[in-house]
């Protein structure tokens, strides 16, 4: 079951004109912003399939940038997001790709500043709902069926156990979990799907644990 809440169907409240190309795009941008943790100085976005063919008409570009500026789907500032970003001196680049992707509405978002960069692939599956399929080269297999959090951490012993302990202490059950790393001892990523929505307090508690770099909720 890809959709689990009635508000995935009746909702979101959003700025038009397209739930997948505008609201979904804004959400992809916002997840990238949230994972990056600050406003980027430059943005490169590759658009695929229907996104590439129709992004101007749907405001997919403004919506992605709106999300990167941390605007929600119903924030009227989305309409002016590109102007707002340029006024802040953020360098924007859009690339229309020809490659055929698994899903017709796919965007690859690469953002950064002098301190670092982040690369993420998001797909917009309809009605404003999105899935993140790749993060910094880590492949994600998020079903989107359950609330999920992403935990970026240093690849050290105990990091996973500590996160699991915090969730257990709040009586949160883990339904599915994946851990991936690019190199032994370097940065790693936990993808955790849980049975119930997780409050900000729990996320904050996890983020304070040793070796945890960033915690983000990506599915409600």
């Amino acid at each position: 079951m890809k959709y689990k809440s009635v508000f995935d169907i009746i909702g979101p409240v959003m700025i038009g004109p397209s739930s997948s190309h505008t609201a979904g795009a804004a959400r992809i941008g916002r997840v990238a912003r949230s994972l990056f943790g600050r406003e980027p100085k430059w943005v490169n976005i590759s658009l695929y399939g229907s996104f590439a063919k129709t992004y101007r008409g749907h405001g997919t570009d403004v919506a992605l940038i709106g999300g990167l500026l941390d605007f929600d789907t119903d924030d009227p500032r989305i309409i002016k997001a590109i102007d707002l970003a340029e006024a802040k001196g953020i360098k924007l680049r859009f690339i229309e790709e020809d490659a055929v992707t698994d899903h017709p509405n796919t965007a690859r978002v690469i953002i950064g500043d002098d301190k670092g960069e982040l690369e993420l692939v998001g797909i917009s599956i309809g009605g404003g709902k999105i899935e993140i399929t790749e993060l910094n080269g880590f492949e994600l297999k998020l079903s989107g069926h359950h609330p999920a959090i992403l935990v970026v951490h240093n690849d050290r012993f105990g990091a996973i156990a500590n996160v699991a302990n915090v969730l257990a202490s709040h009586q949160v059950n883990i339904g599915h979990m994946e851990v991936s790393r690019k190199e032994k001892g370097k940065m790693a990523l936990m993808t955790i799907e849980v049975d119930h929505n997780i409050g900000q307090d729990i996320l904050d508690e996890i983020e304070k644990l040793p070796n945890i770099l960033k915690v983000t909720k990506i599915v409600d």
Partner: peptide, 21 residues
């Protein structure tokens, strides 16, 4: 028409089909 004018709507189930319900 409000949706096309980038106004605020509620997707039902999508924005492009938000008028019917």
């Amino acid at each position: 028409e409000v949706n096309a004018a980038m106004g605020t709507i509620c997707a039902t189930p999508t924005a492009g089909s938000a008028g019917v319900v």
